[in-house]
């Protein structure tokens, strides 16, 4: 474990405070030598969690690879907002092929490097939850089982946000999307659907799987670094709030990612060779899911016109089950 827990003093948050830390404890992103692989000036929305996550992931991977990195991108927001011809925001060799084939393309890049005897250049694949857990899932699973030397990163914002907020296999229960509208007797996304891509990745017994969010960017960088220390197929599943899709304020992206963790809805863990190796316990007693749900318009139907107690209870029980299953309960509780 390379993760170093850092105590903050000013706000009790993992999200801020670089300037208050000793230089060696600051993020890679805050360093003057960062690669700036995803440079500014791209066209992401204000408050985009994916842009934030990708920026930290790329530069941490670049640091770990000594600047020798090739990135493969699935179709999706990240690809669209970063490469409107003739502009590009990428300062790494970068390829976008299709929506559903990014892990395979990354496998191809890795195979070409092997054939050429290039053992230094590393390969990073990335996509949104649609490209990863839905249309690209066979491709991802194939890359995993072959053990190709690729770190694949899913930026999960819980839906097809690029096409106008439609439901994906990563959309949480009860969430309103354009294709799971908040109408009828069971508004929003059905319970019991969706897939846990990170756990399925663990089941492939690949060297490294981890979950992370854009709320704790030190943790995110550390997990990228840990993944890059290994070879073979590795997977990182990063929760990235989407103000457009979630109906949240652009200023609340980091806060919502933190609340997803603190409620127990999004457990943070690392798994190595098919076993959970480390779990991040909650820093404070579980936050009721309502605190996480309320700021998001995709859950407004749970509170208006009247409170949907039954659905709120079901969502709370999902968080409770996670806390139990992963042993997330805080030391203070």
């Amino acid at each position: 474990m390379t993760t170093q827990r850092v105590k903050f003093y000013q706000v009790g948050s993992f999200a801020v405070g670089n300037r208050l830390l000793d230089p060696e404890q600051r993020t890679i992103q805050s360093g003057p030598d960062r690669a700036n692989a995803l440079t500014s000036g791209h066209r992401a929305c204000r408050g985009c969690g994916e842009a934030l996550g990708a920026r930290f992931v790329q530069d941490a991977a670049m640091r770990a690879a000594g600047g020798k990195l090739i990135s493969v991108n699935a179709t999706g927001c990240l690809e669209v907002f970063s490469t409107p011809f003739p502009e590009t925001a990428w300062q790494v060799p970068w390829i976008h092929s299709l929506f559903g084939n990014a892990p395979s393309v990354a496998s191809g890049v890795a195979a070409a490097l092997r054939a050429k005897g290039d053992t230094r250049t590393r390969v990073l694949g990335q996509g949104g939850d649609g490209g990863t857990v839905d249309i690209g899932f066979a491709s991802l699973s194939g890359m995993f089982e072959r053990g190709d030397d690729v770190l694949f990163v899913c930026y999960d914002n819980g839906g097809y946000m690029n096409t106008g907020v439609q439901r994906s296999g990563a959309t949480p229960p009860a969430a309103r999307t354009a294709t799971t509208p908040a109408v009828g007797p069971a508004p929003g996304n059905p319970f019991g659907q969706g897939k846990d891509a990170a756990r399925i990745a663990v089941a492939h017994r690949i060297p490294y799987v981890a979950t992370a969010t854009v709320a704790d960017l030190h943790d995110l960088e550390d997990k990228v670094t840990a993944a890059m220390e290994l070879h073979g197929a590795r997977y990182l599943h990063v929760l990235v709030p989407c103000p457009l899709g979630w109906g949240s304020d652009a200023s609340e992206t980091v806060k919502l990612a933190r609340l997803a963790v603190e409620t127990g809805l999004f457990p943070l863990y690392e798994a190595r060779e098919g076993r959970i190796a480390a779990v991040t316990r909650l820093r404070r007693g579980p936050v009721p899911v309502e605190e996480y749900l309320r700021p998001q318009k995709r859950y407004r139907h749970l509170f208006e016109p009247e409170r949907d107690e039954a659905t709120l209870d079901r969502l709370q029980s999902i968080a409770d089950a996670n806390i139990d299953e992963y042993g997330l309960a805080s030391e203070e509780s």
Binding site: L98, N101, V105, S107, G108, A112, A115, K116, S139
Partner: peptide, 16 residues
């Protein structure tokens, strides 16, 4: 695992 992957691996390799 599929023809889609076969040509996609070829795409990544060729671009490298």
């Amino acid at each position: 695992e599929s023809e889609m992957a076969a040509l996609s691996v070829a795409i990544g390799a060729s671009a490298t």
